[in-house]
Computed example of a mutant assay.
Amino acid sequence: MKFEGTFQYMGNHGIVFNVSQITLTDSERGRLRELHFGEAKHAHYVVNSKVVEVYDKMQARGLPCVMMIGISRPLTRQQGDALNAQGTTIATRAAAAFASAAKAVAPLTWRHL
């Protein structure tokens, strides 16, 4: 398992995400449960379970797999109200954050696909 990097991304309404990018191979799937994301605090087991679930759905079949795991800091009441007022969900914002973050750290060859 190779950690490519860890960085922070600030999305709309000041929502801050801590993003970790890792590269996995088939032989390292069993070690996914050993990962610890301090940002998740008591929910780190839930995050680990979701990472394993997503990896299994990807069915990389021996190819290296690059994953980006993002965890937001707790939202303030104002941030939650602003999101609700727009009729958006955290998942939509997270997808936008990951797309922007992936574009920023992706090699140039990926940007042309």
Rank of each mutant, 00 (worst) to 15 (best):
A97W: 03
R93H: 09
V54L: 05
A97N: 07
L63G: 00
I69Y: 01
T92R: 12
M10N: 13
V46C: 10
K103E: 10
S20I: 05
Q21W: 14
H44D: 15
F37Q: 00
H42Q: 15
T23S: 15
A85G: 10
N48V: 11
I22W: 04
T6W: 01
T6P: 01
E34Y: 13
G62C: 02
L24N: 02
S27R: 13
I71V: 15
E28I: 01
R73E: 15
A99P: 01
S27L: 13
M67T: 01
G87K: 04
T89S: 10
S49A: 15
E28D: 12
M1D: 08
G87D: 07
N12D: 07
G30D: 07
S27F: 08
A85D: 04
Q8K: 00
A91Q: 13
V51L: 06
V19H: 02
M10P: 03
S100D: 06
V51C: 01
M58E: 15
T23I: 12
N84A: 15
F7T: 01
T76H: 09
V52T: 03
I22F: 06
F3V: 02
T92Q: 04
F3M: 12
S20V: 13
H13C: 05
Q59E: 11
L32H: 06
I90Q: 13
L83C: 08
F3N: 04
V51Q: 05
A101Y: 10
Q59S: 13
V66N: 14
P64R: 13
A97V: 15
L83Y: 09
R93P: 03
S49G: 13
G70Q: 06
F98M: 10
E28S: 10
G38C: 04
K57H: 02
Q79Y: 04
L108D: 07
M68C: 00
L83H: 01
A102M: 08
A94W: 05
M10H: 08
H36T: 14
Y9Q: 12
G11Q: 02
A95E: 12
Q59I: 11
L63I: 00
Q86D: 14
K57M: 07
Q79I: 09
Y9G: 05
G70E: 04
L83W: 03
A95H: 06
A94F: 03
L113A: 08
G87M: 09
L75R: 00
V47P: 06
T88D: 14
A96E: 09
T89E: 03
I69G: 05
S49I: 11
G5M: 05
S27W: 10
F37S: 03
H36W: 03
A95Q: 09
I15Y: 04
L35Q: 12
W110M: 10
M1I: 10
I71R: 00
A91W: 08
A40T: 03
F3S: 11
N18F: 06
V46G: 11
H44Y: 15
I22Y: 08
A106I: 00
A82Q: 12
A85K: 11
R93G: 02
G87Q: 11
R29P: 02
A106P: 09
G87H: 10
V105Q: 04
R111L: 07
H36C: 07
E4W: 02
A95N: 08
F37G: 00
D81G: 00
N84T: 13
E39L: 07
D26L: 01
L24P: 05
T89V: 00
V16E: 06
T92K: 07
D81R: 14
M10L: 11
P64H: 08
A43F: 15
N12Q: 15
H42M: 11
